Simulated assay, not measured.
Amino acid sequence: MQIIDPNHPFFRPVWRRWATALFPLAWAGIEVYGGSPGWAMLFGAVGAYAVWQLLIVGPSDT
């Protein structure tokens, strides 16, 4: 079972994949600015995983 399934119909529009991948990274920046490095690392890891699954690996063509 995948945590994020790039083949799910919700992620068919490209803008949703980008938004889902970049929002946690932006939130990690806000947490760093706010002085919460633990939350920043958590959201950074979630964002990195989302970038990997949704943008780099992406949906399969079948």
Rank of each mutant, 00 (worst) to 15 (best):
D5M: 02
D5L: 03
D5P: 04
P6L: 02
P6Y: 01
N7Q: 01
N7H: 05
N7R: 12
F10I: 01
F11G: 09
R12E: 00
P13K: 04
P13F: 03
W15H: 12
W15Q: 06
R16K: 15
R16C: 11
R17E: 09
R17S: 15
A19Y: 09
A19V: 11
A19G: 15
T20S: 07
A21F: 11
F23W: 09
F23L: 12
F23E: 02
F23A: 15
F23V: 10
L25S: 13
L25K: 14
L25R: 09
A26P: 02
A26F: 12
A28L: 04
A28W: 01
A28Y: 03
A28G: 10
A28Q: 04
I30F: 09
E31A: 13
E31W: 07
E31M: 10
E31R: 14
V32S: 10
Y33R: 15
Y33F: 11
Y33K: 15
Y33C: 14
G34Y: 05
G34A: 14
G35H: 08
G35V: 04
S36Q: 15
S36F: 15
P37W: 07
G38T: 11
G38R: 13
G38S: 09
W39I: 09
A40N: 13
L42F: 14
F43T: 14
F43P: 03
V46P: 03
V46Q: 07
G47T: 00
G47M: 00
A48M: 04
Y49D: 00
Y49V: 03
A50N: 10
A50E: 01
A50R: 09
V51S: 06
V51N: 02
V51Q: 02
W52Y: 14
Q53Y: 02
Q53N: 03
Q53I: 02
Q53L: 00
Q53W: 03
L54M: 08
L55M: 07
L55H: 07
I56P: 01
I56Y: 02
I56C: 07
I56E: 00
I56S: 04
I56T: 03
V57P: 06
V57F: 06
V57R: 15
G58E: 04
P59N: 12
